[in-house]
Amino acid sequence: MSPTSFPPPGAPPPEDDGPTPQPTYIPPPGIAPPGHPVPPGLPTAPPAPGMLGAAHRPGAVPLRPLTLGSMYDGAFRIIRYNPKATVGAAALVTAIGMSVPIVLSLLFTLTLGTGLDAGGSPEDDLSAGEAIGLLGSVGALLLGLYATQLGLIFVTGMVAHVTRAAALGRRMSLGEAWAATHGKRWRLIGLSLLVGLGGLLLISLLVVPVVLVAVLTGEVLATVGLAVVVGVAMVCLFGWLWIKLTYLTSAILMLEDGGVFRALGRSWRITGRHYWRTLGIALLTMLITSIAAGILTTPISLAGQIGTVLAPEYVFVILAATQALASVIQNAFVTPFAGAVSSLQYLDLRIRKEGYDVELMRQAGLLPR
């Protein structure tokens, strides 16, 4: 029987000669073999041929162009292995910010009586003190929400550093993540203010024509038609600018050198030819986090509504407390997950367009520096 022919039917199986010996990888002269101690001054050998596929994932994600599944899997891994710097940071910031409306609403209720009188009628006029307390409670809630959003801006910057460290196989504590944002926190605030002012300016420019048509012509049909056209144009314009200028800018500010305007320019360039893919992943992430947040916070909202019926005199305290608890639970999941996904998209785009995976492998010790 020739060596390449199959055995006849009924013949015993060939004896197992053991595993096929693998060729020994010998590194170039002057380089230490993989797995051996590296003498001082001697560089480490790169991975053996054929072994790069098994070694190119030192951390949460593979160091190659990422798929959607790799991004979502990596985001969950980042949260799981860095809980204090992700979930803990978001929950802590939200709890501190939302403690403001709880304390002030309780103070107004006890001193000015801002609750609802179960025996009163809706037509009863509010006293001056009750009106002040009511406005104060609403203002305190808005203040708490604003303070929370301001703190979450810093959490997003921390998550960017945590994501890059996780891609290299490293964990960051809460203190390390906070320290990594040193020197760039004001840039995050400046970016948020610039984006907010730019958004208000664009809205004003788009709304003015509708108002002018309504005032000058008085035609309801023309006004409604123009409003629909302007509304569609506004959604498209803001969606385009969101991806091109703002979606990845926080990660760029944190992980690269430069100011706000340089980060905006980098975002514009890095999303070139990848707009629709970036938009699709961003919208899908927004949909997933919105559904998850609704599922997590619905029981708390129902409990708050029941509480206001049972204790109407403390209605604003109960509403502030339930809003605070719902915000803590929601932000503890949404902010780290969305921030990790957007940071992974930034790394993915740099890998695709700039070969950033080679630099990440060097930083992870997979390739010689």
Score class of each variant (00 low, 15 high):
69 G>T: 14
69 G>M: 14
70 S>M: 12
70 S>Y: 08
70 S>I: 09
72 Y>E: 05
73 D>Y: 14
75 A>E: 01
75 A>C: 06
76 F>E: 06
78 I>T: 05
80 R>N: 08
80 R>P: 12
80 R>D: 14
82 N>C: 08
83 P>I: 00
84 K>M: 15
86 T>I: 12
89 A>S: 14
90 A>V: 01
91 A>I: 11
93 V>G: 03
93 V>T: 08
94 T>C: 05
94 T>S: 11
95 A>H: 04
96 I>K: 14
97 G>D: 10
102 I>M: 07
103 V>F: 15
104 L>N: 03
106 L>W: 05
107 L>H: 10
111 T>D: 13
112 L>H: 15
113 G>R: 02
114 T>E: 11
114 T>I: 11
114 T>V: 15
121 S>C: 15
124 D>V: 12
125 D>C: 09
127 S>N: 13
128 A>H: 14
131 A>K: 14
138 V>W: 07
139 G>C: 13
142 L>D: 04
145 L>Y: 11
145 L>F: 14
146 Y>V: 11
147 A>Q: 15
148 T>A: 07
150 L>P: 00
150 L>E: 08
154 F>P: 09
157 G>K: 04
159 V>S: 00
161 H>W: 10
164 R>V: 09
167 A>F: 06
168 L>Q: 12
169 G>E: 10
169 G>H: 02
172 M>H: 05
172 M>G: 00
172 M>T: 09
174 L>V: 04
178 W>D: 04
180 A>L: 08
181 T>K: 05
181 T>S: 14
182 H>Q: 14
183 G>M: 11
183 G>C: 03
184 K>T: 07
187 R>K: 11
187 R>N: 13
